[in-house]
Simulated assay, not measured.
Amino acid sequence: MKFMFRKFDTLGMPILGAAAMVLFVLERKHQLRRRTRPKKDRLVENGSVAAAAVPALRLLLVPGMYAAAQWANKNSFGLMAWLRLPKWAKYGAGFLLLDYSNYLWHVLLHKSDLLWRFHNVHHIDMDLDLSSAWRFHIGENVASVPYRGGMVALLGVPAPLVLFYEVIFEGCTAFHHSNLRLPYAFEKHLCQLMVTPRMHGIHHSIVARETNSNFSVIFSAWDRLHQTLRLNVPQDKITIGVPSYRNPHEQSPAHLFRMPFEKQRPWQLPDGTVPSREELPRQKELLP
């Protein structure tokens, strides 16, 4: 299995690093949602989780997906080969289908009780910003290897496309997790095409029907296709997190690592109430 990817490591990763630095500065100057916890505490917490998860992504997931694509390409296996598409179509359709497969994976993370145990580590963050983009339990990244590798093989996408898509995937994940306030008129149009900070902020709400919406990663079309799009929630009304995990002391790195192996709590606040919100009209219209 190949582990070193020259263009991915010497071009893709530096580009992602530069983009992250720009987002880090911009979200401090143009804040979308008011913070509820100290930034330094969250950087330590999220950085600790990422310190284990990111190497798993780079050393297991990326090589695994690339190997799956190479195998499929060599054996003329997968949808792209069976349809006998020209090269340009393999790259275009392959990019879209890779993104669709990740929409489905995200839905599965919420629907599977086992996978949710790991994904919940990401969701109990009580603020949402750039650091949240890498706050994924190592178990979730390891679990994604067979799924994402399997989808790469079934689609039969070109191996170089896997690396290109992963760079765009990570960049978009950083962008829509950021706490960056874009001009409302601009973002209202942008979210017609791709996932934006306001759109993804709704996905991190403590209101269950809002959390179970906006699963897309790059293109918002998948939520439109499956009727899981929800944009009609004002940003200043959103409480970020999971209702049963509102104690800041439970955000410690030690607890975050062991949390998937503990009994999961019901979706309710500590006082037993279930967060709700009156449904506003025009579900697919982004609100400020």
Rank of each mutant, 00 (worst) to 15 (best):
M1G: 13
K2Y: 12
M4E: 12
K7W: 15
V22Y: 00
L23Q: 08
F24Y: 15
L32H: 06
L32T: 11
R37M: 14
R37A: 09
K39T: 12
D41I: 07
R42F: 04
G47V: 01
V49A: 07
V49W: 03
A51H: 02
A52W: 15
P55Q: 12
A56R: 14
L57V: 08
R58N: 13
R58M: 15
L59V: 10
L60Y: 10
P63Q: 11
P63G: 10
P63I: 06
M65W: 07
Y66W: 14
A68M: 07
S76C: 05
M80Y: 09
A81N: 15
W82S: 14
W82I: 04
R84E: 14
P86T: 06
K87M: 12
A93R: 00
F95G: 02
S101V: 01
W105S: 00
V107F: 06
H110M: 02
H110W: 00
L115T: 11
N120Q: 15
L128T: 05
S131E: 01
S132T: 15
S144M: 10
V145K: 11
G150H: 13
M151Q: 13
A153R: 11
V157G: 08
P158Q: 12
P158R: 12
F164Y: 14
F169Q: 11
E170D: 08
A174R: 10
H177V: 05
P183V: 02
P183F: 03
E187W: 10
K188E: 04
C191Q: 15
M194I: 15
M194W: 13
P197K: 05
P197D: 06
M199V: 05
N212R: 10
N214L: 06
F215K: 08
D223N: 08
H226E: 03
Q227F: 05
L229F: 05
L231N: 08
V233G: 01
V233R: 03
V233P: 01
P234H: 03
I238A: 01
T239E: 11
P243A: 01
P248E: 03
S252P: 02
P253F: 03
K263M: 08
Q264F: 04
R265M: 13
R265E: 14
L269S: 06
T273V: 03
S276Y: 09
E278S: 00
E278L: 03
E285A: 01
P288Y: 05
